[in-house]
Simulated assay, not measured.
Amino acid sequence: MNSTHSTQPVLVFIHGFLDGADAWDDVVSELGARASNALCVDLPGMGARASEPGPYSLERFADDVATQVRALSGPRRPVVLVGHSMGAQIAELVAARLGEQVRGLVLLTPVPLRGAGLPPDVIRAFHAAGGNPAAQRELRRSLAANLDDAQLERLGQLGDRVAPAAVGTFADLWNEGHPEGPEPARYRGPVLIMRGEGDAFINADLIASGVTPRFASPEVVSIERAGHWPHVEQAVAVVHALQSFLANVESTSVTPQGWTRAFEQKSEDTFSDAFAPEVVLEASVLARPVAGIERVKAIMTTASKIYEALAFTHEARKDSRDYLEWEVLAFGGERMRGVTVLTKNPAGKIVHIAIHHRPLGGALKFSAELARRLNGQIDASFFYSGA
């Protein structure tokens, strides 16, 4: 089989608490041509957008970034999201919004999506940095391991722009987190987690308990001689880890096509566009094959709505066949995996679909749920009822 490659993903950098797009300058410079089209966002109320008023929320930030990503040139241009600290929380929420457009998620010294949970006496120190440049710089110095004076001042000047009243609001946002934080992540694609070895705030225990368990198989990298700002303290090491991750992502990423886009949009019309009239569906969740575009698109559209999260993880192609590996969540977070084989005619329309779910228990439950939702539309004999 010959592996296929999608358009090289655009890198999207999302800064953290009191920072701005300029915090990524060293990383972007080190990446050179690979970051020539990178999007370094300024969040509302920070960076170049410090004058934008509230109300502020993680949801607002995620919507803002998602809107900027959707405006990138090209139809549904693939992206890799890179978020630092609070920006890691936002990056994860953006990934859930953009679906298969996101080919990789990089979390740099990430605050868990559930929040840091600092007690009131500790979070007060972050509140106190508002309107107090000296306190802010001291706070940064205490959380860093290798910031020189020039780097500290560059970050400090970013924080100086933020309205004093907004500083406490932003601190509360990352400290209290998001309601989805205790649940498994909705994003199911490749994940790289980087932490600074000298970061006393986002330490190894916090990442092990609050971040890594939420993802299927994240890669975790420690950056030596770095604290909470590895992208400033050790930009070369961060870029090295990022490039290695990108090489993996770009060698296994799934090319957008009618099939994967139809699952994202959960639309009968989009499935229709991908199918030939005589399409046949065989699947481990079906008792026998289903033929004809109307019945097949009804089943596939219904199936797409049962999935709570879906990620296509690998793709290969040989002659007229596409092979797709995927992972899904359904039934309140139950994980299933599988392989789909698509056979296309010379016009590029799908004429045969073979879908293999695992494990068996999940497949049987899925079949029964399809039967329930399609009652009166598709004959019950196509499904297993004893799940």
Rank of each mutant, 00 (worst) to 15 (best):
G47N: 08
G47M: 09
G47I: 12
A48F: 02
A48C: 07
A48K: 15
A50S: 13
S51N: 12
E52Y: 00
E52R: 07
E52K: 04
P53D: 14
P53N: 13
G54E: 10
P55C: 08
S57W: 07
S57C: 07
L58N: 04
E59N: 13
F61L: 05
A62E: 06
D63W: 15
D64I: 11
V65G: 00
V65L: 06
A66W: 00
T67R: 10
T67D: 15
Q68I: 06
V69C: 10
R70D: 14
R70H: 09
R70Q: 13
S73E: 11
G74C: 03
G74S: 04
R77Y: 00
R77P: 05
P78H: 00
P78W: 00
V79F: 00
L81R: 15
V82E: 01
G83P: 01
G83F: 13
G83D: 13
G83Q: 13
G83S: 07
G83T: 10
H84L: 02
H84T: 00
S85E: 09
S85W: 14
M86C: 11
G87C: 13
G87L: 13
Q89D: 05
Q89G: 05
I90K: 05
A91G: 02
A91L: 12
A91Q: 08
V94T: 05
V94C: 04
A95I: 11
A95N: 12
A95M: 09
A96F: 06
L98C: 04
G99P: 05
E100L: 01
Q101H: 00
V102M: 12
V102D: 02
V102K: 13
R103Y: 00
L105S: 02
V106H: 02
V106T: 01
L107Y: 02
L108R: 08
T109Y: 14
T109F: 14
P110F: 09
V111P: 08
V111Q: 10
P112M: 15
L113N: 00
R114S: 03
R114H: 03
G115P: 03
G117Y: 03
L118N: 12
L118K: 09
P119N: 06
P119K: 03
P120A: 09
D121P: 01
V122I: 10
V122Q: 15
I123E: 04
I123K: 03
R124C: 08
R124K: 11
R124T: 08
A125K: 09
A125Y: 05
A128V: 06
A128R: 09
A128S: 12
G130S: 08
N132S: 11
A134Y: 07
A134M: 07
A134R: 10
A135Y: 01
A135H: 04
Q136D: 15
Q136H: 13
L139E: 03
R140A: 07
R141E: 03
R141P: 09
A144P: 12
A144M: 11
N146Y: 05
L147W: 06
L147N: 04
D148K: 05
D149P: 15
A150P: 05
A150Y: 06
L152Q: 03
R154D: 12
R154Q: 14
L155W: 05
L155Y: 08
Q157I: 01
Q157M: 07
Q157E: 15
Q157K: 11
L158N: 03
G159R: 00
G159N: 02
G159P: 08
D160K: 00
D160E: 12
R161M: 07
V162K: 06
V162R: 09
V162Q: 12
A163W: 02
A163L: 14
A163K: 09
P164M: 11
P164N: 10
